[in-house]
Computed example of a mutant assay.
Amino acid sequence: MFRSYLRLVLFALGLLLGVQVPGFIDDYAKRVDAHRIEARQALQGFRDTARRFFDGDLDALVAHYRASPDPVMRSDADSVATLVARDALLEREWQAMQGPWYWRAWHLASAADPALLAETRAAYRYQVLLAPEAIAWALACGLFLALVVESVVSLIGLVLGGGRRRPARQAWR
Rank of each mutant, 00 (worst) to 15 (best):
T82W: 00
Q41C: 12
R40Y: 05
R51D: 14
F54V: 01
A67W: 10
R66Y: 07
G56C: 05
V84H: 10
Q44E: 14
F46G: 03
D59W: 02
D57N: 11
S79V: 07
A39M: 13
D70G: 07
A81W: 03
R66G: 13
D70Y: 07
V62F: 09
P71W: 06
P69Q: 05
G45E: 06
D55E: 12
A60I: 04
S79D: 09
R47G: 10
R66F: 09
V62E: 09
Q41P: 13
D76C: 01
Q44I: 12
H64S: 10
R66W: 08
A77W: 01
D57P: 05
A39P: 11
G56H: 07
R86G: 05
G56Y: 05
V84C: 10
D76F: 10
L61H: 02
A60S: 07
P71M: 12
R47I: 12
G45T: 02
F53C: 03
S75K: 14
P69I: 02
S68V: 06
Y65P: 08
D57Y: 03
D59A: 09
D78K: 10
A39N: 05
S79I: 06
Q41G: 15
M73Q: 00
D78Q: 12
A77P: 04
D48Q: 15
S75D: 14
D76R: 12
P69V: 02
H64K: 06
V84S: 02
A81Q: 11
L83G: 05
V72Q: 15
T49Q: 14
L61T: 01
D59C: 04
T49H: 11
P71H: 01
G45A: 09
A50D: 06
V84R: 14
V84W: 05
R66N: 13
D55G: 04
E38F: 03
A77S: 07
D55V: 04
R66I: 10
D57M: 04
A85G: 06
S75C: 08
L83M: 11
V62H: 09
R86T: 06
P69R: 01
F46L: 13
T82F: 00
T49D: 13
